[in-house]
Design a protein around this nucleic acid. Structure first.
Lengths: 198, 198
DNA sequence: TCTCGTTCCTAGCAGCGCTAGATATTTTGT
DNA sequence: ACAAAATATCTAGCGCTGCTAGGAACGAGA
């Protein structure tokens, strides 16, 4: 009986439709504009349908965040691959991270600012999450000099995250971001970095 | 006619009462628990009274944030004063910053995470804000080595901010924060820092 | 074609930030 | 000391939020 398969297929499609609509709405007008009513309207279903797919609005944001992790991971991977030498990857990858934060603010918020109920620093964390972190770690590795690579990567990540969020929140002027990033790279590469701008 | 003076005095007192109540409620249960109704209840006035003091809930959060900036500034000042040498101030002040973020999460959120309508990186920013930043800058100064002090301070600040927010959001395990901080200090002091734990 | 099970929508709940209009209180002028 | 004016404060309500119960419409299988 292929009826059930068709139903399941349609269900998956609709779920993706919801996620995409939420993401587009968030990217266009910010998460505060994403209400269940507007979202339902956009997918041309009534509100309760959302709740047959997701436990609540948070779950929808989590689904969007997961897409974000995949894309960020891709960006970082591409940046590292494009680095002329492994030692330069740190700046390339960091720069890609900052660019992602600026280009996809809503996605970034869903991933790192909301109380998204995902396991993070554990083996149970989704694979895309590990993948992204590993890209960072590979870029950091040539500059670890015996330090714990995981912790050093986390520290570098925190610095990038701080730059993104403080700038986005109007606490730091955007115009000098490139120079701040160059300073950060210099500190993490014992002086050989040039920053590669942002 | 001292009537008006008395009224003005009472008004100021009540305003402070509102701010304190908001702060206590936020620190006890988080900002999402701070509703205008609960807040009005707590100060034993009706809702509209809040709006005769503040333009809206955001303005109340901003007032709380300003108190936070004062306290953080005090903490940083004390930490720097307690440093055995100027070179050690970086770790002391950074450690105090992280401690503040953990001890006063609601205050920290009001200051750095909400869209609080304050001028930040401009001369018009409130004095307490400059004061806090200057404490950081003074601690960073011995390690600038010709780099732009303002930008380097901002970069250090961003790293601290990233550590605070990622840890608070469950993205980084709290237990290793001390070691991450030690790594950060090492990168910003060209190897002479020990981190002073957190 | 009729029944059953699923799918989906209409309508509504409690709570949110915020405000208009009525009420109570205080101050002022006689 | 008392009425009028001015101020302070509250009650009630608006439009919105996330979320859900109950019924209506639909499709599948006999």
């Amino acid at each position: 009986m292929s009826t059930e398969k068709r139903k399941e297929r349609e269900r998956v499609q609709r779920e993706q439709l919801i996620i995409t609509a939420a993401r587009e709405l968030a990217e266009a007008e910010g998460w505060e504009a994403v209400t269940t009513r507007r979202l339902a309207d956009r997918v041309e279903y009534s509100q309760p349908v959302l709740y047959s797919h997701f436990k609540g609005k948070d779950a929808i944001m989590t689904a969007v965040a997961l897409e974000g992790f995949t894309e960020l991971g891709d960006d970082l991977r591409a940046a590292r691959a494009a680095a002329p030498t492994p030692a330069h990857a740190l700046a390339q990858v960091g720069s890609a991270y900052l660019a992602f934060g600026e280009r996809r603010p809503a996605l970034y918020d869903a991933m790192f600012r909301q109380n998204v109920n995902l396991p993070f620093a554990t083996p149970e964390a989704p694979a895309v999450l590990h993948a992204g972190f590993n890209e960072l770690a590979e870029a950091v590795a040539p500059h670890a000099y015996g330090a714990d690579l995981g912790l050093l990567t986390e520290t570098y990540w925190a610095a990038l995250h701080g730059l993104v969020t403080l700038t986005r929140g109007g606490r730091l002027p955007r115009e000098a971001q490139g120079r701040r990033f160059a300073l950060l790279i210099a500190r993490f590469t014992h002086g050989l970095g040039d920053g590669a701008g942002t």
